[in-house]
Nucleic acid binder design. Structure first.
Lengths: 112, 112
DNA sequence: TACATATATTCGGATAATCGAATATAGTTT
DNA sequence: AAACTATATTCGATTATCCGAATATATGTA
């Protein structure tokens, strides 16, 4: 039985992954998991130019990973769903375990 | 206190996300979660040309998301860590919930 | 060895992502 | 309104990704 062709949900799913697929955006998400923050606060924390942070935040916003709220002239961004952090944490654990396995393989073959 | 600059782990983390960021690769992973499969079997299931499947599998292999094992002239691919499916499932749930929220927002404003 | 099957790779072109630099917009204060 | 602060956007160039088509490699078999 052939699978249905790539359906809409799968495209959206891939879009979410794409939004996560940048080291700066991952840092932004972890920073927002801590607490909501202004754009400038994020830029300073991560040592990035403000326009760069804004552009990354837009991408995260378009995927409904963060929300924004005005606070005077500033805009406060917050994480929309903390399960995204669980997702990132699990992925990181999978990655670390894979690296450990590879490292063991190397040792077992006398490459340590 | 400024964060450390983007460290190695974060780059690897982003690479994993990047590997997940394609609808065809997501389908491949779900298909392999079911059971290990040959390249051709995957290609037929997903109605994709064999070279396309091979290229996607290489990307997944490079990120240690799948492993391959020879079986005669065929090569059997399998999922390396099933937690990746948990990750994908949670992401999909987050996505569906976000879509539901958006849909409710539209209705509440008379756009239904 | 010759042939068949299964998988992997390369090439070229199209599409998309990212960044720095410059600039535009929105809200606040005087 | 003018000046200021915070945020967002655009532009142009660079780099990365993806695909179809063609081809190469590897294993098994006659």
């Amino acid at each position: 039985m052939a699978y249905p062709p790539l359906h809409e949900l799968n495209l959206l799913h891939a879009n979410i992954c794409q939004a996560l697929a940048d080291p700066k955006r991952i840092l932004i998400l972890y920073a927002l998991a801590d607490e909501p923050r202004h754009v400038t606060a994020l830029a300073e924390m991560l040592c990035l130019p403000q326009p760069t942070v804004s552009r990354h935040l837009r991408i995260l916003r378009q995927q409904s990973l963060v929300t924004s709220e005005r606070d005077g002239t500033a805009v406060v961004y917050s994480l929309l769903d903390h399960r995204i952090i669980d997702v990132l944490d699990t992925m990181r654990q999978v990655m670390v375990d894979a690296l450990a396995r590879q490292s063991n393989l190397l040792e077992d073959n006398g490459f340590s």
